[in-house]
Simulated scan of single mutants.
Amino acid sequence: MAEPKRKATLQAPHAEKKVNPNNDARYLFVKRCIDVTGALTGLLVLLILLVIISLLIKVEDPKGSIFFSQKRVGKDGKEFNMYKFRSMVSDAEAKLADLLAQNETTGAMFKMKNDPRVTKIGKFIRKTSIDELPQLINVLKGDMSLVGPRPPLVREIKEYTEHQMQRLLVTPGCTGLWQVSGRSNIGFEEMVNLDLAYIETRSIKADIVIMFKTVFMLFGSKDAY
């Protein structure tokens, strides 16, 4: 099904620019079909890997849960529970306050390369982005898409400006332009600009390119931590 041509470039918009999302009905329909098909296929193909990772997480920390559920903010400010494989110690959230001063990124996000809360298996699944695979369940539920801006934490959006809040104009994604453009080495403002650029120019072609780049990152991106 053909979709209307849009400007192909994904250049970051100027600060404080009002974003006009690509909400073409045909694009959104095809995107949802790809999301459901891709999520189901991914869960089936990776089933053995998911079981192995689950066992390794349980062996390292028998008292902890296999999955980690965290409240995130999606399209139009709607909150939902996002799923991940647990890559940190069980009381990671309680220890966050003591580490905020060591934040290695800018803006509302928290990133720390040698985060002491990360487990041994957690380091591996983060490096390969395997910890993100349970989000395929979020995709099936419609909370997330395969491609889109990463959903922020509730505490993060409390610090957002009106310009930054435009990240919430579309359904968030498991991967996106930010993740394939440098990820943890990119500051918060640049991440916002990349997300807004994607929102304006998103298309099936752009989504497919981002998904292919993401697959290669599963083999171990040096920018992931």
Rank of each mutant, 00 (worst) to 15 (best):
A15C: 04
L43C: 03
Y225S: 07
E79M: 11
Q102L: 13
Y83S: 15
I57H: 01
E3L: 13
L50T: 00
S129H: 15
A94S: 15
I208T: 12
T105R: 06
C174D: 00
F212P: 03
L136R: 05
L133G: 05
R183D: 02
E3N: 08
R167D: 02
V30S: 03
K78F: 13
V209C: 12
K17I: 04
E3W: 01
P21N: 00
Q179A: 08
Q70G: 12
K5F: 06
L136F: 15
V209P: 13
N23W: 03
K123R: 09
M88E: 01
I186M: 05
V89Q: 12
L96H: 05
H163M: 02
Q11C: 00
P13M: 11
E189A: 02
L46G: 10
V180L: 12
G64S: 15
G42V: 01
K95Q: 14
A108D: 01
L55W: 11
G173A: 11
K63T: 06
P4A: 10
G64H: 12
N22H: 14
E60S: 01
I34K: 06
Q70P: 12
S54N: 02
K120G: 01
I186K: 05
D223G: 13
H14R: 15
G38A: 05
I34Y: 10
K71Q: 15
G173E: 05
K222E: 06
H14G: 13
W178H: 09
D143M: 14
K222H: 09
I34A: 07
D207A: 12
Q179G: 09
R126D: 04
K75P: 04
R6S: 07
G176P: 07
Q102S: 12
T171Q: 11
V118K: 08
I199C: 02
I210M: 08
T106P: 02
T175N: 09
V59F: 14
